[in-house]
């Protein structure tokens, strides 16, 4: 089985976000870039599945839509254990345009499962996975928190409002995954980092997919009012605040 893991390149989670050009674009000055945390979990599990010979997974490919600046992130994916990386050479404009790029590549190359993280840490759209599936007219399962293989078939666990459901499928599907799919991301070791240099990183031109949405401005949230401190021996006072002032009790 071949797995395609979609990788978003996002600012480190501790980044103090700033905007430039009259608050119309993200200011990337000095920003550290990382593999989107959910995509990192997706990749971790994909590599684990491949490395455990009880599973039918034979190849893990990672893909990113982005400019040349995202290559260190793709190299890190190779160091974690992906076999091959693909970069579609364009700056992503919105989820629709990004998904269309990935879908057109997937159309030409058969993957059994395309795996996306549940959201991207920058624009938090939760969209690309579902959109790829619709472009490919294939099934998608979202909120996936585990996968196991039994007799060549995948059993996928998903979270629903009432609990969990276990879905059997043979492939040709998009999985949109969250915490649980893997618990902690794999850290690349020295050998992985050395091997990553030899692995293929293919750059392919973008298609002319259009965007349907446009980010036109940004704001930082209003600073929060200062915290009201309550003495540890005055819990009655806290309860009063919560009921009378905040009206939440």
């Amino acid at each position: 089985m071949k797995l395609l893991v979609c990788i978003s390149n996002v600012p480190d989670t501790t980044t103090k976000v700033r905007f430039a050009d009259n608050q119309t674009r993200f200011d990337a000055t000095g920003v550290q870039w990382i593999i989107n945390p959910w995509d990192e979990l997706a990749l971790t599990r994909a590599v684990d599945l491949k490395e455990d010979s009880n599973n039918p997974v034979s190849e893990v490919v990672v893909i990113n839509v982005g400019s040349v600046e995202t290559e260190p992130t793709l190299r890190k994916c190779l160091a974690i254990g992906a076999d091959k990386a693909i970069r579609i050479d364009t700056v992503p404009k919105d989820a629709f345009q990004t998904a269309k790029q990935i879908a057109s590549l997937a159309q030409k190359n058969a993957f059994d499962f395309i795996i996306c993280g549940i959201e991207s840490g920058d624009y938090n759209s939760s969209s690309v996975g579902g959109m790829i599936a619709e472009f490919l007219d294939t099934v998608s399962v979202s909120s996936v928190s585990d996968i196991q293989f039994q007799e060549g078939k995948a059993i996928v666990e998903r979270d629903v409002a009432a609990g969990k459901e276990y879905i059997q499928m043979e492939g040709n599907a998009v999985l949109i995954v969250q915490k649980g799919f893997a618990k902690e991301p794999k850290i690349p070791n020295m050998r992985g980092i050395m091997m990553a240099r030899q692995k293929p990183l293919e750059v392919i031109p973008a298609n002319d997919a259009n965007a349907l949405t446009e980010y036109i401005g940004f704001q930082l949230p209003e600073p929060k009012a200062k915290v009201k401190m309550v003495n540890a021996d005055q819990m009655t006072e806290l309860v009063n605040f919560l009921s009378k002032e905040a009206k939440v009790l």
Partner: peptide, 16 residues
């Protein structure tokens, strides 16, 4: 909408 995991708000225009 909220972006950057709640660190900012963005104004997004839908063109369709």
């Amino acid at each position: 909408k909220r972006v950057f995991s709640g660190k900012a708000l963005a104004q997004v225009q839908i063109n369709s």
